[in-house]
Structures are given as structure tokens and as C-alpha cells.
């Protein structure tokens, strides 16, 4: 079994386990305000890290390339309140143009 299959099956199994667990345990266990606060912040930390790494990392090297320009376009589109698919497409096209012409 290769890396892709391990990632697909492992993450799917754990995601399902968490969902079922949440629907099954008594509420008092996890409703501490601190747990709830941290839980709201975890996606912010992880998503930001994913943005940074997928924009500036090439394996373990830091680079500024066509992706950075694509992300600049994404930020402009988000500030202009563009819908999600437009943001993704705009970033992809901008980075493709940068890749082609620089």
C-alpha cells in the first residue's frame, strides 16, 4: 500500500471515529470553555500554516515563485468578497501566467 492510500484510509477512518465519538459521549466531558476556545483556534493555526507552506515551501526549501503571485491575487479577490471558486480559479490563473511569462 503506498503513501496515498495510507493517507486516504487513515485520515478517513479517524475523521469518522471523531464524528461518532462526538455524537456518543456525554456533553459535560468536552464542553469546558478552554477546550472550546482552543478548538476554535486550531483550524486558524493549521490552515494558516498550510497556506504558508504551500505557497513558500518547495520540499524543505523556502522559495518565492509563481505561487506567491497567485496568492497575492487570491488576497485581492477575498478582500473584494469574491466567492470561493473565483478565488481559487483567479489564483491558479495568475500563477499560471506568472509561470509562463517570468
Amino acid at each position: 500500500m503506498n503513501a496515498f492510500w495510507i493517507a486516504v484510509i487513515g485520515s478517513s477512518a479517524l475523521a469518522f471515529a471523531i464524528k461518532v465519538l462526538g455524537a456518543s459521549v456525554p456533553e459535560s466531558v468536552l464542553s469546558h470553555p478552554r477546550i472550546l476556545r482552543i478548538n476554535n483556534l486550531v483550524p486558524v493555526a493549521l490552515l494558516t500554516a498550510l497556506v504558508a507552506v504551500n505557497t513558500f515551501a518547495d520540499k524543505t526549501k523556502l522559495v518565492i515563485d509563481n505561487r506567491a503571485l497567485g496568492m497575492a491575487a487570491a488576497i485581492v479577490l477575498l478582500i473584494a468578497k469574491a466567492p470561493f471558486p473565483v478565488v481559487v480559479l483567479g489564483a491558479a490563473l495568475t500563477s499560471a501566467l506568472a509561470y509562463r511569462y517570468f
Binding site: 503513501a3 485520515s11 479517524l14 464524528k19 455524537a23 459521549v25
Partner: peptide, 29 residues
């Protein structure tokens, strides 16, 4: 994203699972 960045399946699973914990708390609610 983690696999695309060259990460191992284990770190892909860990990142994905940490992001998924909120679904458990939704279930609780």
C-alpha cells in the same frame, strides 16, 4: 496539501485529524 508539500502520510493524517476534531464537538452540541 501535506502530501503535495512532500509530507509523510502520518503527518497528513495527523493534520487532517486535528482539523477534524471540531466535527466531534459539533456532534456533542
Amino acid at each position: 496539501g501535506v502530501i503535495a508539500a512532500g509530507g509523510t502520510p502520518l503527518s497528513a493524517i495527523a493534520t487532517s485529524t486535528l482539523l477534524g476534531t471540531r466535527n466531534g464537538l459539533y456532534g456533542l452540541r
